[in-house]
C-alpha cells in the first residue's frame, strides 16, 4: 500500500529557494504568480493491507523523521 507524505514549511518560515524560483518565474514574464511554495513529497510503499494501518505507519514515520514539527507540517494521502 503506497502512501504519499507531503511535507512543507510552516507559513511564515522563509524558504530562500522558493523565493529565488518565484523571482525567476517573474523574470520569465509570469507576472500573475503571487506566491510559490516548495513541497517535499515521499511515496512510501508499506506492507500493510488496510489503508488505516498504512496511514498510521506513515504518520509515525512523518512524526519521527520525515517532517520536523518545529518548522514543517505534513499531509498524508493514499496513492492506491
Amino acid at each position: 500500500m503506497k502512501v504519499r507524505v507531503e511535507v512543507r514549511l510552516k507559513p511564515g518560515v522563509l524558504d530562500p529557494a522558493a523565493a529565488t524560483i518565484l523571482r525567476s518565474l517573474h523574470r520569465l514574464g509570469f507576472d500573475d504568480v503571487q506566491d510559490l511554495v516548495q513541497v517535499r513529497a515521499f511515496e512510501v510503499d508499506i506492507a500493510k493491507v488496510r489503508p488505516e494501518d498504512a496511514l498510521a505507519d506513515a504518520r509515525a514515520m512523518a512524526d519521527q523523521l520525515l517532517a520536523n514539527p518545529v518548522i514543517e507540517t505534513y499531509r498524508l494521502d493514499l496513492v492506491e
Binding site: 518560515v13 522563509l14 524558504d15 530562500p16 529557494a17 523565493a19 529565488t20 520536523n68 518545529v70 518548522i71
Partner: peptide, 17 residues
C-alpha cells in the same frame, strides 16, 4: 542537537540562500 530535541528550535537555509 536541534533535530535530536536536546536543544529547541531548528536551523534552516541561510536567508541569502
Amino acid at each position: 542537537l536541534c533535530e535530536t530535541g536536546l536543544l529547541p528550535g531548528a536551523l534552516l537555509a541561510n536567508e541569502g540562500g
